[in-house]
């Protein structure tokens, strides 16, 4: 020991070693602090909810709908049957996203911002959906989403709320109004004949209840639609599954969805409307197809 103390070289070594450990410990401390700072419970819950909602099985039953793709392809049969349908698919995807953003997105945003108006929004969306096929698809998916909420998400959500206690009074009050709106909507769906339960307003309301940030909610709404259409294209043999993932992953799609959300951010529901009039015809004429693999 004394020999060690007397040796200047070993002292220097020891100091260097201690300094390295101090540095290391400091950096570990800083790291763990920054992680805990990010991992506050609400944002974690929001992320979890976002992941739940982005499940490819959701909206439940969406695999049955092609949102007009099938009808579109039937209206655009190319002269050589072997010709690739890929270019027309890309056109369709663009038109379909544009239509969804101009007709449905304002309802998602408004239901999120104003949960109490859900019944009016549901009625107005129904009044603005001009064809039976599109209505059927939207209602089926809306009801499925409501069922998932009722049977799967709600129990966990109310547990989490009781545990969270009274820590954030204002947020709770806001969340409560959304939950009440959802509960009363769900009740009137069973009792009154006037409620339809369309997907768009319900999506806004449920993401609000689950505290998903509004922008993420809107983005996911459009993304889910793109994924549904792309997945329908795979099953309609327009493209292969790898190609489909590539389209879904593409920066082009990402950019398009982001800009559509930006464009629609301040659009009022009264100004929602059809930007691609021929889309109504394709979707409406789906019923007239000789053979169908989809419901819309």
């Amino acid at each position: 020991m004394s020999a060690n103390n007397d040796n200047p070289q070993s002292l220097k070594d020891e100091i260097a070693e201690l300094e390295r450990r101090l540095q290391d410990a400091k950096s570990r401390l800083g790291h763990s602090v920054s992680i805990t700072a990010q991992a506050t419970p609400p944002s974690d819950a929001a992320l979890h909810a976002l992941l739940l909602l982005s499940d490819s099985a959701l909206p439940l039953g969406s695999f049955a709908f092609s949102s007009g793709l099938e009808s579109y392809l039937a209206h655009h049969k190319h002269s050589p049957p072997s010709a690739s349908q890929l270019p027309s698919f890309h056109t369709f995807l663009r038109l379909s996203l544009s239509t969804l953003a101009s007709t449905a997105l304002p309802y998602v945003l408004e239901a999120y911002r104003n949960p109490g108006g859900i019944e009016t929004l549901d009625n107005d969306f129904d009044a603005s959906t001009p064809c039976t096929v599109a209505r059927r698809a939207s209602i089926a998916q809306g009801r499925a989403l409501l069922a998932v909420w009722d049977r799967s998400f709600r129990a966990q959500h109310s547990n989490a709320r009781t545990q969270a206690g009274i820590s954030s009074g204002i947020n709770r009050a806001q969340g409560d109004s959304a939950i009440e709106a959802l509960a009363s909507f769900s009740t009137s769906l069973r009792t009154s004949g006037d409620i339809n339960a369309h997907l768009a307003p319900l999506w806004g309301l449920i993401t609000r209840v689950l505290s998903v940030p509004l922008h993420d909610s809107a983005y996911l709404f459009l993304f889910s639609h793109a994924r549904t259409v792309i997945s329908a294209a795979v099953r309609a043999s327009v493209m292969g599954p790898y190609q489909a993932q590539a389209v879904l992953a593409s920066g082009e799609l990402q950019n398009r969805i982001r800009t559509l959300v930006e464009e629609g951010w301040d659009k009022r529901v009264e100004d929602a409307g059809q930007s691609v009039p021929v889309m109504d015809l394709w979707v409406g004429r789906h019923e007239k197809l000789y053979s169908r693999i989809f419901n819309s």
């Binding site: 663009r94 544009s98 101009s102 398009r256 464009e263 929602a272 409307g273 059809q274 930007s275 009039p277």
Partner: peptide
């Protein structure tokens, strides 16, 4: 409601 303009991406 029909809207024909430059938006829609």
């Amino acid at each position: 409601n029909l809207i024909l303009d430059k938006t829609g991406q």
